[in-house]
Amino acid sequence: MRALLLRDLILAIRAGGGFGLGLAFFLIVVVLVPFSVGPAPELLSRIAAGALWLGALLACLLSLDRILALDWEDGTLDLLATSPLPLEAALAIKALAHWLTTALPLVVAAPLFGVLLNLPAPGFFWLTVSLLVGTPALSIIGAFGAALTVGLKRGGLLLSLLVVPLYVPTLIFGAEVARRGAEGLDATGPLAMLGGITAGTIALMPFASAAVLRMALK
């Protein structure tokens, strides 16, 4: 398992684009927000938390097909499926690698981008916390979507279409935590829900993803 995690991390670093592309996309989304709604500081500070969550989610979505597509093309998935490593574990590890290489940089960068959107001071802490708790769910749900669309010709667009509805609860609770935090309200309620969703998906989704991947490899 450690070997698979290390390999995915090394590949992400060597191939480039692992950390960089997602972050750059996140930055672009954040920059586009004032262009589309206007530069008024009070408006920006009101929508900052939500806009940052949306940007992070889109950046995450963009890189999902990398979780499995390359391994499918070069036959690694077939070999992994016949290896002693259970597919459930392999998918959980690959989701973890995706989180480490794509989502974690977003979490780190989000407060910096928050400055651009005039995020209120108490919001920085809650935004970081909510992203830290919520993004693992995005990665692990994304691995399920990647397994569903592995080997399909127009997989990329379809993947987004399938995954976005599954992201709704995470986005709602995550953005709610950040927004309440930014407004100085108590955010522990939605944070607990967000944590619950993340814990639930980490516990259950690898099994669904592995079942789907076995079906897709046939």
């Binding site: 390999r7 090394i10 060597r14 070069d74 036959g75 690694t76």
Partner: peptide
């Protein structure tokens, strides 16, 4: 026993960046 099988096919499962 499936745990005794090594399978190799047309694609080698090699990563070009390794």
């Amino acid at each position: 026993d499936p745990d005794q099988v090594a399978y190799a096919a047309h694609s080698d499962g090699l990563k070009s960046m390794l």
